[in-house]
Design a protein around this nucleic acid. Structure first.
Lengths: 154, 154
DNA sequence: CTTGAAAAGAACTGCCT
DNA sequence: AGGCAGTTCTTTTCAAG
């Protein structure tokens, strides 16, 4: 676990607001030269802290107007059940995230669909037919706000 | 809502795997010229489909080993309650995502902490003291897999 | 949609403080 | 560490087919 100074934190905070910025832009904002900033970014990447950049897609625009959180409880929970379930669920295109969690439900899935009718199709044909699925709870997403996280602040 | 052809989908699928790639790299993989690929990316950005790039941070490496999903039920639910809660909750650094949802709980929060002791501090001092908070349910994240989503596939 | 070419900018390197 | 100067690569824009 690498040590970060205040400059690293400020750098990460800037990148978190927009990961498309280059070393020159960030350096200007931090009062650093392009090469100094670039070297810091390199160091953070090599340390694995900066793991990559992910695309921010507008799902609405792409015709996926519905996002649903699904809590899934498995009926049988051996090691094989978990692996079977995970392998099967990750092959469903509409499933964006598979989170293995501790609690009443074993998994939390983030599922996108074109509309509620489309979601029902995915739920009935793809999710409910998964191996070992027991109880399922669904929560339709109304709105969402993403926050910078504790890095820039702490 | 813009129309996408197969090439656009392939392009987005590539960017989804790694948003740091340039037009030249992607074009080579798709059998397109750099300029053709670049123009497609521009079009997707102007249409708002490509909304931006987000940083992929390794929270473990940064010392945040614990992620918890919190379901929060509000005790009183007027328009003012929702807005008060949202304003207050978004000012907590450890809260990464605030999702307004439909169901038993009103909000789903994604919270990160250094460890469980740190999480307990956040929960008791920051979350439970939020305006209007009623029932709270917590799910510790064990593991998570992110999937490409339905764009490249459909 | 392509190629080619020029201008601009970003990435990367080596050397110096 | 950071700054500076230079090289190399990619991006971006343009013209023309």
């Amino acid at each position: 676990m690498m040590r970060l100074d205040e400059t690293d934190r400020a750098l990460l905070a800037m990148l978190e607001r927009d990961a498309g910025q280059g070393a020159a832009t960030i350096g200007r904002a931090l009062g650093l030269s392009q090469s100094a900033t670039w070297r810091r970014m390199q160091r953070l990447e090599r340390a694995g802290i900066l793991a990559g950049r992910r695309l921010d897609l507008d799902l609405e625009q792409l015709g996926f107007g519905v996002t649903v959180f699904l809590g899934v409880k498995l009926a049988t929970k051996g090691r094989v059940s978990l692996e079977d379930f995970e392998r099967a669920v990750t092959s469903i295109p509409e499933v964006q995230t598979v989170s293995h969690i501790l609690g009443l439900y074993d998994y939390r899935l983030r599922v996108v669909a074109r509309d509620l009718a489309d979601f029902e199709r995915v739920l009935r044909r793809r999710i409910m037919t998964l191996p070992g699925v027991g109880d399922v709870e669904a929560n339709v997403l109304l709105s969402e706000e993403l926050r910078p996280g504790p890095i820039g602040a702490a």
